[in-house]
Measured scan of single mutants.
Amino acid sequence: DHDVVPEDKFQETLHLKEKEGCPQAFHALLSWLLTQDSTAILDFWRVLFKDYNLERYGRLQPILDSFPKDVDLSQPRKGRKPPAVPKALVPPPRLPTKRKASEEARAAAPAALTPRGTASPGSQLKAKPPKKPESSAEQQRLPLGNGIQTMSASVQRAVAMSSGDVPGARGAVEGILIQQVFESGGSKKCIQVGGEFYTPSKFEDSGSGKNKARSSSGPKPLVRAKGAQGAAPGGGEARLGQQGSVPAPLALPSDPQLHQKNEDECAVCRDGGELICCDGCPRAFHLACLSPPLREIPSGTWRCSSCLQATVQEVQPRAEEPRPQEPPVETPLPPGLRSAGEEVRGPPGEPLAGMDTTLVYKHLPAPPSAAPLPGLDSSALHPLLCVGPEGQQNLAPGARCGVCGDGTDVLRCTHCAAAFHWRCHFPAGTSRPGTGLRCRSCSGDVTPAPVEGVLAPSPARLAPGPAKDDTASHEPALHRDDLESLLSEHTFDGILQWAIQSMARPAAPFPS
């Protein structure tokens, strides 16, 4: 592969990997390779389809078979030569091979799209000592099968071997295949498990690692696999990028399955594409389908809103127990993405979901129960707010008499603000006073009005108090039968009158 990737590009890729991570280095090298001529790309395919690569990765054979028959990708048995050289000459001794072996032994695996480039050397060096003999053996194999790289107009793939297949390693990572398949204008990513390549439709969760975000852009890794992070704060999961590491605690105790298979379609829109997988259930989501939507993949363990709600429900009964003089119970939860139609709101002032922060849900004790107040519409209280300059209440639009249902020339009671006709409430011909108009209920007259088809109010509507207090003497005590009587009149003013009279009014101040 030294004929494909020059030394300066190799060093530039290593520097970019240390600065921005393996995914960015892979993407940059792939983009550079696509700008080369067809001879360089053909050399790339020839390096990929060597015999030892085909033996190690069985899924490469179907890719090789898909090439046109007129494309010669065979390799000479006596060494490598550029395709432009007409004579089959043995190339001179390859010093770059020693360079590659020494550099890969030092860096474990470079971040390139060629056999030198995919593992994360920093994480491997940190986690190597417990498994040094086995990992050293794996390093000797890295130059042979560490990076199976493929690129063409139909298929483009980048393979990364790992030393996680050490025997006896619980939940060992089998390997990473960062794979971009450009077929019919689409893009897919796969993962390699035990020599087999699994596409998103049959993606397997190998051991402790999972394909957290099938994305090839942005600074985030394709698999949430930063070796420096180790395990999740809650004892979460091992990262795919942690090559040759000792077994780590796999999943939280509440995880239903340690080796679950995540779905390959969004649980909201039932469509495929780039998904984020939940650590607590097999569901996966688009970032845009979450509520609120996320802009980037959160670091650490992530769970959907259903799993978060289940966790909150487990903690909430203990938080609601009476604990005198104790601060509110704080339950730190990872930043969760909410699927459509589901929402768990945190306290005000918290950062938005999706940031690399930890939301704190506070379970406050329930407030003391209070008697429910009568629910009145805002339009129902409008007549009470229509007060004239002299303190006389004006008529609201649409006000109707509670007896006849007519809204023409209605009066407004100064005591309960109900609309009424003087002739309907006082049919006996009582003279109307000039000021202080009161309806039949507030004036103490319980004589029913002779209106055909309208039920008369119940005599129990009024329960006047002592006459010594004029204001308190007109406080009506309405009961269920009074409400039914008012409802039978089918008037809004009657219902409003009952609601206003049912509310307690402050006692009249004593004259000074």
Rank of each mutant, 00 (worst) to 15 (best):
G241W: 15
Q242L: 10
Q243E: 08
S245P: 12
S245R: 07
A248N: 04
A248I: 09
S254L: 14
D255M: 14
D255C: 13
P256L: 08
P256K: 14
P256T: 14
L258T: 06
Q260K: 12
K261E: 03
K261L: 08
N262Y: 11
E263F: 11
E265N: 15
A267C: 14
A267D: 13
V268N: 06
R270N: 10
R270M: 13
D271G: 05
D271H: 12
D271L: 03
G272K: 11
G272P: 09
G273H: 11
E274A: 10
L275H: 14
L275A: 11
I276M: 08
C278H: 10
D279S: 07
D279N: 06
D279L: 08
G280M: 01
P282V: 12
F285M: 15
F285E: 14
L287S: 08
L287R: 12
C289F: 06
S291E: 07
P292M: 12
E296W: 12
S299D: 06
R303W: 06
C304N: 15
S305V: 08
L308H: 10
Q309N: 09
Q313W: 15
E314R: 13
Q316P: 08
A319G: 07
A319Q: 06
P328H: 12
P334G: 02
L337V: 10
L337C: 12
G341T: 09
G341W: 15
E342C: 05
E343W: 13
G349R: 10
L352E: 12
M355D: 07
T357W: 15
T358V: 12
K362Y: 15
H363I: 12
P365G: 12
S369Y: 12
S369M: 07
S369P: 11
A370Y: 04
S378E: 04
H382A: 11
P383R: 06
L384R: 06
L385D: 07
C386E: 10
V387P: 10
P389V: 04
G391S: 13
Q393M: 14
L395R: 09
L395E: 08
D406H: 14
L411G: 13
C413T: 01
T414E: 04
A417K: 00
F420A: 03
W422C: 11
R423T: 14
F426P: 05
F426V: 05
P433G: 13
G436L: 06
R438M: 14
R438S: 06
R440N: 10
S441H: 05
C442T: 02
G444H: 14
G444P: 15
P448A: 05
A449L: 14
P450F: 14
P450C: 14
G453F: 15
A456S: 06
A456F: 12
P457K: 12
S458A: 10
P459W: 06
A460M: 13
A460L: 11
L462V: 11
L462M: 02
A463V: 10
P464K: 07
D469R: 04
T471V: 05
S473G: 07
A477F: 05
L478P: 06
L478A: 07
L478Q: 02
R480M: 10
R480S: 05
D481L: 02
D482N: 05
L483I: 09
H490Y: 14
H490D: 06
H490L: 03
T491M: 00
T491C: 15
W498L: 06
I500Q: 02
A504G: 07
A508K: 03
P509E: 04
P509L: 11
P509S: 11
F510Q: 03
